[in-house]
């Protein structure tokens, strides 16, 4: 799956990476995926998967904030007092999210409108707090960047997969930033035009995002039995 391709890309681009560091990127794509295994960052992941373009913008924003936040916290890790670390982390992350929000408002106003509150909610996206607490607080910036990229991409591919299924089945089209919606299915297939196909409007509704992620979890855990929970 995507795990293999990511590994090859990394090898050719930056051959100096140790095996351990490379694992930091590839693990979150599969067996320690932030959404399906670590159960982090689901809050914003599901609500914005109605259209592919929102999912793309959201993934990029999260990747940016994750990398920025993790590196800053990693650099400051010996200076942050333990008792107030959550507030310090929140302030760092909130600053980065304000930057992302202002950039989106300036250059992608339509998508910024559609994402509405969910850009702001990156602040409380559990991926950020989870990875900062679990990794950035105890590691040097180098491995932290790897971990952030890996988790950002692991988050992104689930988001894109869910958005692709929902948009394709829900409206028979896919949309990418800057291209608008591209109709993939010919109009003559639809019942209104004398065909046999009808868009599944259920896919557009919020609950289906949960069911699709449930399916992804099902597939992933039946391929890797070690991930199965007790009950």
């Amino acid at each position: 799956m995507s795990t293999q391709t990511a590994e090859v890309v990394e090898k050719t681009r930056e051959p100096l990476f140790s095996k351990k560091n490379r694992k930091l990127i590839t693990d979150p794509l599969g067996d320690s995926n932030p959404i399906t295994v670590q159960v982090l960052g689901i809050c914003s992941a599901l609500a914005i998967t109605v259209q592919l373009q929102q999912a793309v913008i959201m993934s990029l924003s999260v990747l940016f904030v994750l990398m920025g936040g993790n590196v800053v916290v990693s650099l400051l890790r010996n200076m942050i007092p333990d008792r107030i670390r959550i507030i310090v982390q929140l302030v760092i992350v909130a600053t980065l999210v304000i930057i992302v929000d202002q950039i989106l408002k300036a250059f992608q106003p339509d998508i910024s409108e559609k994402l509405s509150v969910f850009v702001g909610l990156i602040i409380t996206n559990c991926i950020l707090m989870g990875r900062i607490e679990a990794f950035a607080l105890g590691n040097k910036p180098g491995p932290t960047v790897m971990d952030a990229i890996g988790n950002g991409l692991g988050y992104a591919w689930i988001l894109l997969a869910v958005a692709l299924v929902r948009e394709l089945m829900g409206s028979g089209a896919i949309s990418l930033p800057g291209m608008g919606q591209v109709k993939l299915l010919p109009t003559s297939w639809f019942i209104s035009e004398g065909g046999v196909y009808e868009n599944n409007n259920l896919m557009i509704l919020p609950p289906m995002a949960l069911v699709i992620v449930g399916m992804i979890i099902w597939i992933q855990r039946s391929r890797n039995k070690a991930l199965i929970e007790e009950n």
Binding site: T36, P207, G214, I217, I219, Q220, R221, S222
Partner: peptide, 23 residues
């Protein structure tokens, strides 16, 4: 529950069904 769905998977799907009910 099918083993791979235990825990997280089935919770997601049930939440989806509850969401449909709440609609």
């Amino acid at each position: 529950v099918p083993a791979p769905l235990k825990g997280l998977g089935i919770t997601f799907i049930i939440t989806g069904l509850m969401g449909i009910a709440f609609m």
